[in-house]
Design a binder for these strands. Sequence first.
DNA 1: CTAGTACCGTACGGTACAGTACGCTGCGCT
DNA 2: AGCGCAGCGTACTGTACCGTACGGTACTAG
Lengths: 228, 228
Amino acid sequence: MNVSSIQDEAALSERQIGVLAAVLRLLVETGDRLTMAAVARAASCSKETLYKWFGDRDGLLAATVRWQAARVRVGPVDRSRLDRERLAERLEEFAINWLSVISTDTSIALNRVAIGAAAKAGAAGPGTGAADPHSLGAIVLENGRFAMGRRLKPVLEAGREAGLLAFDDAEEAFRTFFGLVARDIHIRLLLGDRIVLDPERIRGEAARAVGQFLALHGADPQTGAAGA
Amino acid sequence: MNVSSIQDEAALSERQIGVLAAVLRLLVETGDRLTMAAVARAASCSKETLYKWFGDRDGLLAATVRWQAARVRVGPVDRSRLDRERLAERLEEFAINWLSVISTDTSIALNRVAIGAAAKAGAAGPGTGAADPHSLGAIVLENGRFAMGRRLKPVLEAGREAGLLAFDDAEEAFRTFFGLVARDIHIRLLLGDRIVLDPERIRGEAARAVGQFLALHGADPQTGAAGA
DNA sequence: CTAGTACCGTACGGTACAGTACGCTGCGCT
DNA sequence: AGCGCAGCGTACTGTACCGTACGGTACTAG
């Protein structure tokens, strides 16, 4: 199906990035009613060029998702001397960043497209084994949920080494943090519920989530961890 | 757009229910590649009848979602004398039920369709005000997330009155519970990640979530609440 | 037996859109 | 100048599918 002249790490020309930006804009504006003709028009290029570059409608979508996902990266882990204050700050920063990203129009649009793609391909799967790693859903997951896990876990482990956190499994601890941050927000946004998420509110949500997480996994002098 | 000969509370005939069941089956099997012709074939009825009954493709989808959502209801709130044991049991029951539902093929398919519909209608909205209450997304939200909230909040409040729980706002407490139960599971399922959720695992997740929730909002003799 | 009703099966019109073919333009190279 | 190439714009093909129309069938009422 997907010839993909664009390999994973192939550099994108300026022009091609323009195309992807146009795709993203259209995706946000018109939902998944995205047509190749509309992309060509919006990007001032010909359909034939689109097919030459991206091989396929799916290839175009995948390239867009990959490209957008690549720009989510944020500041590196500052591993230097953790005290409780610094750790909480770091976690809050993560939470704020995460909430800011998932409430973005582009993030919502991309997640919706990926979920739609998963719906199309969902039934054919053999049941055993993980989902096709080239699917949009896998890409979004990989660059969203899992990337965040990879970035946060070192922080958690540093916190544990510094005696500030207590947990058995960093993955589990991260998932709890994830749940405390997102709660019902993500699914509501995806389903079209209009939630006001101004920076104020995001900051508040982040502070609450971090407080709760520390209440669960903060290392009290006397208590062990409460995790499963 | 949607003429909907089927009003919200109109009784569905046996035959019509058969059609909706077929829609659901096809939705699970073929993703949102659902065509009216396929439905007619699967339900052994004519397309014309489909249009007469449901007015529209959207109407058919909405009827299916409503019908399926209506069967999520579960046991009533047993308000009789709460002790800590009983409360935890009740919460676990909720969590187990919730996880069981959202990991169902049909639930996933329906959520995906609703999210896809939200994607199509997403950009046209005026921005202010809530989403169209007739949209599939709104229906799913109303019968899923919000129905669960309405059912769980009395339990939480009963727990508070019995001195077992401490929180300021039942809605906020519920959202925390929601986050602790679902964590990253729902979004991963929607995006096509294959997670094994056997009853064993579900029970474990539920127990953990309840433990964490009680750690956050359980009324210790000495401590106030930690909620925001 | 005739008329009416409710429905099945299928054929048809119309439209939207993926993917392809082709002509034309401008640019670098020799 | 002549050649090749990258790419724009557009016209074209094929297909999928929504929504409708129509003929045929079973069943009921009078």
